[in-house]
Computed example of a mutant assay.
Amino acid sequence: MKVTRSMIEQDAQYLLESVQATDYEIPSSGDIFKVIFKVYGFVVLLQVVAVLVDWFLYSASYKYYSLFSMVIFSGISLVIIFGVLCIMLYQNVSLALCIPEDVRRQSLVCQIVRAKLRSYFVAVILFNTIVASVLIYCGQAYAGGLGASWFVSLGIASVCFSYSTARYFTPQVMAVIDKIAEVITPSTSVNK
């Protein structure tokens, strides 16, 4: 799809007008965490599957292998990853949920961001699935280290996502997004 600067800037203005004109619902923390847990669920699922497969393959071969220690080791990394996801997503999800859903569906900026988020998320999941397979193949208890892979891959994906979307965010679009953030969270404009 051909995207021009004027299309993006008009769409950003449309987002601003929709937020200013509607009595948007302020999202609760539960609504925001629902979105974060959708992403986090894939992380937990892959980690649990990797640990269970690792335990199934290697527990009989190694006398001192402990599923409990693997769960603790994996649990620590999962808590760290959850913290990283909260830092990366909380404010952005909060901002997005304040924009009415029908407006988000029609918005070109939202469609571009959503498509890029999905593609990067699929890439991160595929990458970590491959890493989990390699770690399981390498030997017992390596699957517990999958959290480090998630940490690194999420960091790299967020930087790549920023670079890939930066070309769409012209100075005028960024000014409009700042205005949207001021409308939605007036406390930020007071603190500046």
Rank of each mutant, 00 (worst) to 15 (best):
I130N: 10
V71L: 09
Y64E: 15
V53R: 07
V35Q: 15
V113Y: 14
M88L: 15
T4G: 05
S61W: 11
S94M: 10
L154Q: 13
V173K: 13
V49N: 06
A157C: 01
M7A: 11
L108M: 11
D54Y: 03
D11E: 12
V44Y: 05
Q13N: 10
E182C: 13
V39M: 10
S158N: 12
N128Y: 05
I26P: 06
I136C: 07
T4E: 12
P27I: 00
Y120W: 13
Q91M: 14
S29H: 14
W150V: 01
Y163D: 13
I125E: 13
V53M: 11
Y58R: 02
S66N: 04
Y64P: 07
V3Y: 14
S164P: 04
M70I: 01
F82C: 07
R118H: 15
S158W: 13
M174F: 08
G83H: 04
K116R: 13
I177H: 14
A157Q: 01
I180D: 13
I36Y: 09
I130E: 10
L97I: 02
A123Y: 08
Y163L: 13
I156G: 01
I76D: 00
T4L: 08
K179D: 14
Q140L: 11
F82Y: 11
L15R: 04
V134T: 02
V103I: 05
C110G: 13
L46E: 06
I156R: 04
G83V: 00
P186W: 01
L57A: 04
Q106Y: 12
S162V: 01
I136Q: 07
I26W: 08
G75E: 02
P186D: 06
A96S: 15
R104I: 08
A21M: 04
A148I: 08
S6Q: 12
M88P: 09
I156M: 01
K34Q: 08
V131Q: 06
W55A: 10
Y58S: 01
